[in-house]
Design a protein around this nucleic acid. Structure first.
Lengths: 191, 191, 191, 191
DNA sequence: CATGAATGAGGGTTCATTCAT
DNA sequence: GATGAATGAACCCTCATTCAT
């Protein structure tokens, strides 16, 4: 029997192609051909290509955060977890040929994107912020008296460095931007 | 007679459309229609849509750096010039409806982009790095003895923050990421 | 409903137009317009114009050999069958306004033709050779002792006369070359 | 100074391209580019692409018959001159990658060709017939009494064999059809 | 003689989507 | 759930030709 349903095959194939080739450069025909399903089957499961795109964004979300979790599973120190998350990203970018951030790319391909798509992109960014904020909070800060750390600020800055470095790598197709991003993070955390 | 040449009209129109709608969502037909020229005229001046894209990238380069120059023309303090460049960017993003970075967007639309396109994107990033590095060098650092500033590192970090904040704004369609980016820059500079 | 499938309509129309106007002078637009189908329907059934051309060549093959069979159906004498096949060709050329040989024309229109197209052209020529060779073998030769007939040679020569006469007619738009070709055939057979 | 005029350059280039690639597959742009002249220059010397085609046909006429003359210059025996003319053609076809007969090809590319073009094609065929007829007349026939040779017939048959063999070679991209054509010619001459 | 710039019409091909079965 | 066939609109690009200079 076919272990994977038609729907899963479609999402899997579309995700691979959207990610590797870009959304607009991937046609429905290629998706169904490589997924091995009929065209009408795709439109049975998804109302439109855009709906398929939403499924794609959800799938990449799961893939990425599963990868990150795995990468950090044996690490407990919060500062190290943050640094390592940058390392994980760097490695991921190499493996995906410097394709950049899925969500930023979709935002770039669809300047007038739908609410559904915007929501998925924001969801991923918020999740990242949340992750960093949790780690930052866990850090035992050694601060002079009367000083406090705004963990929200710091988490936002880290996310910006994270996405900024990802973007630079996408342009240069090289990994060195992460060296600078990690240097910046270290400065901010060890202050 | 016609004051602006056909070529200029084409580049101007294409730039507007590529920037507002995206490269793939803008067809040659729309470009020539809104530019008021014949299709063959476009292909007389540009070998392909991709070549037109290169002209577009060059034009945006001129526009952005001219804007930045203008914004900073009366400012001399290097730290302030850096901060103000972030403000300039923020304002620019509002005016362009949070379209993001032209070069990152093109990289996102064309994962397998040509050398020509890549070159333009890298050119713009290097120019930014160069700008920030020059400013950083001009700062009169008050450092403890035996300490030096690696201006190259710092410039790279600032670029990353700059592009990271731009990317975040593109996702959220809001301006707040620049508050955090500027906070980060200030921390790094006032150290 | 529609008795003839869209595919058949396309092949039928394309064959008529390719044959009457030439391959390059017949646009896809004209084909679909006269066939009464949508452009995408054509490309659903045929990967490219060239593939449609292959279908055209196959169709002409069927048409011509069916015509020839019909023309010769009541004739048994092999020599007469050969002569009559030239008559059949002559009549065919008149009916098709001296359009010449489908396969030689395509070879002329596509100097760098694909393997698929070449194959169809060779197929038709070999079929002709085979037909003539079979007839030649059936002839009861009255030869001096120690002499034999090389049926392969003779069949090849007849094919050459056949195509040569067809070509001449295409140039002159007149039928007289067949008189000479038939004279030559008679000389060669009655030896 | 430029020894060859612009006009000559155009004809030379167009001839090469029309012959190698086909008339319809050769665009005006390629011609002027490879000829190194401006587009308007071409249209100064030739009213249209079709007029350029006429010049092309004339040029090929001269090239071919000059080649033939050269090939036969030391041969006097008329029978041998005829056979050698087939050899010359065979060699010519190899050198031109089995492109076939210029005039038949143009007739194939332009089913509804102009009078001017038709005229050039017929001119070449008649010249060939004339050449063969002259040679045939020079042969000292050893005939039984009461028998005569119709040199006109024979010349026509030879032309048909000549073009037929050329056509077959164009299809097969091989030289063997000339073996059969030459065999046929020998039979007809030595009778 | 020669040129660069401009053009309308059409080239072949692919798009995402729908429909009857 | 699934399918093959069909579609209108749009895709990027090239054609032979003309015109003002």
């Amino acid at each position: 029997m076919n272990r994977t349903s038609a729907r899963d095959q479609i999402v899997k194939t579309a995700s691979r192609l959207f990610f590797n080739q870009g959304y607009h450069l991937t046609g429905i025909n290629q998706v169904i051909k490589e997924a091995g399903v009929a065209k009408a089957s795709l439109y049975y499961h998804f109302r439109s290509k855009e709906d398929l795109c939403v499924a794609y964004l959800k799938k990449r979300y799961e893939i990425w955060f599963a990868l990150l979790d795995k990468y950090l599973e044996s690490i407990t120190d919060p500062s190290e977890r943050i640094i390592k998350s940058f390392e994980c990203r760097a490695q991921y970018l190499v493996n995906t040929h410097f394709g950049g951030c899925t969500y930023l790319r979709i935002a770039s391909e669809m300047p007038r994107r739908s609410k559904k798509i915007s929501r998925q992109a924001i969801l991923q960014k918020e999740k990242h912020h949340q992750f960093f904020q949790e780690e930052v909070r866990k850090i035992k800060w050694k601060l002079p008296e009367n000083e406090t750390i705004d963990t929200n600020d710091l988490a936002h800055i880290i996310v910006i460095l994270f996405d900024g470095a990802t973007a630079q790598c996408q342009i240069y197709r090289e990994l060195w931007p992460f060296e600078y991003a990690i240097k910046a993070v270290k400065k901010l955390l060890l202050k």
